[in-house]
Design a protein around this nucleic acid. Sequence first.
DNA 1: TTGAAAGCGCTACCAA
DNA 2: TTGGTAGCGCTTTCAA
Lengths: 340, 340
Amino acid sequence: MRVTIKQIAEEAEVSLTTVSNVINKRFHRVSKEKIALIESIIEKYNYTPNMNARSLVQSSSQLIGLLYYSDEPDLSFSDPFIAEILSGINEQAKKAGYFVLVHNINSKEDVKTIQKNWLFEGFIVVGVWGRQFVEINEVFDRPVVYIDTHLSKETLALVQEQPDRSFVNTDDYAAGVLAVEHLIDYGHSNIAFLSYDYAFNEPSVIEERYRAYVDTLKKHDLRVAEEHIYTDHEFDRLLKDLSQFSAIVVTGDFLAARLFKYLKNRSEFSINTLSVVSFDDISFAELMDPPLTTVRLEQRNKGILAFEQLIALANDQEVESHLLLLEGQLISRKSVRKLE
Amino acid sequence: MRVTIKQIAEEAEVSLTTVSNVINKRFHRVSKEKIALIESIIEKYNYTPNMNARSLVQSSSQLIGLLYYSDEPDLSFSDPFIAEILSGINEQAKKAGYFVLVHNINSKEDVKTIQKNWLFEGFIVVGVWGRQFVEINEVFDRPVVYIDTHLSKETLALVQEQPDRSFVNTDDYAAGVLAVEHLIDYGHSNIAFLSYDYAFNEPSVIEERYRAYVDTLKKHDLRVAEEHIYTDHEFDRLLKDLSQFSAIVVTGDFLAARLFKYLKNRSEFSINTLSVVSFDDISFAELMDPPLTTVRLEQRNKGILAFEQLIALANDQEVESHLLLLEGQLISRKSVRKLE
DNA sequence: TTGAAAGCGCTACCAA
DNA sequence: TTGGTAGCGCTTTCAA
């Protein structure tokens, strides 16, 4: 059987309390000699406290929950984006002696259930945005940091009141500016915009990039038009209009790859005629033909940062800000060409 | 505060024991009326038992551990392969009311620690093979199912004795045969083999495919030679030898993509001259140029199957076999051409 | 069919 | 600086 605090206490000939005190580093309550003795015995048996017992008495559980909000269960964690984030979280967690429980949620009931089952230090939540936010957010009774959750001004103001909520995002607006400026810098002035089909009127990652696109074009006195916006269902329309554009902003590398394929199948000339800039820098981006110019988003760092922020919140430490924005980084490859 | 079994008992005016009995479906020990009453109260409060308390008394924890063995912490869960598996596990787990804790391990100590911290129903372990196996395997005190762990005959014999260990793999040998037969079927007879650099003498996924390659070639009286084997560090040598081959077997889609890029950069003719077949069918495979012919591996299904198997083991149910082999499926696209 | 009580491993409170 | 003890929420004897 695994060794318990009781056995340690017996062997050291001290009380449970004393052992507990050294385990929890309350050194000021124990004499130096006993600390040394007890620590040596702990070392000897390679003792680690039972988290279930600990959790039961409502102290630290060392457990954090990574929650992925999605309606389609088969999507969830296979998304490389979340995989990267998990990877980052996991690395930090292991270093810091934390454990991470992953779970899919698609309702507030899911959150309630999981909270009743286990005691968490806090949560990292991915995939929540728009109207779901308020409903989901209210049921958490522990700190939470949201990743890639963009909020409307009103909602944001509301959350400001809650000291144990934080947000880590890419600065998607800035990333968008980066992409468009690069295009303009290279001489492009007729620039289309391609994204997945989504609700353009709710704050979201895509909406930020869209705003950046519009603003940057306007700033340079370039023409902006609603019909220059395409969704992934409109490749045909895009192809028809292609002669109008010398460049296109695509909201994700995978979508860019789909566009490449589509274009290659129709008209040989297009792919070398059209410049494309995208977002993500997935591992495949550099292997594409042409190698994709894209804004690197560092999802893994988001995971790392989110974990760090969560631990700070959970321990009531001061945090610098509740909105952490990561810089995107333009990776210039071959898919954007210089215009004379 | 969350409602406890005690409050349920009070409201129902019965003992804790009785409530516990209905929660654990020991209906034969409780009268019909009380069952109905208690269940209605449970329903009303949306009561769920506290897993920490449950675990503490050594009954079910509903917790399974997904352990990823790797020396490089930053690799781990960002690998799309493990992400797919996690996705499958997670879906099943949620349906069945289980929770999954993910963790990186790179020593048996890691396993010991996590086992002392929490009570698991069992483990799903990914990334262990060769000599690490025996050492890691012995420290588990709960059922475990390994994914993609190939064992030597001797080790396998050893494990046969352990009724609570199982293995789910793709039938990598069969998948290899599928790939090579396809090539031969299309008229190819000079076929190279490209894989990541690895220990060819230990049982592994790649070794299985390699054996399939050799055996199938031999079966068709085709020439097999050691110098036809290339690693990902030998692209230059491969390029030099390329005129000898009409086709190549590559052990993974991502590597195939790297090869494509390399070849495109050197000699325009090569990529359309060389047929390539690969393994995985990652989402990018069909977007490659040419679209990649590959053997689909269904990693997600492995996760699903592994979970199911684990639950069976944990509940001492009869299992049909301790070695579950999934079929690969050849996805024929454009990267293999018919020879006249 | 029901319930009282012990105890899982730990922390927290209070007293010494 | 130390220790005794109650109790976290639950399951599990054992007795009624």
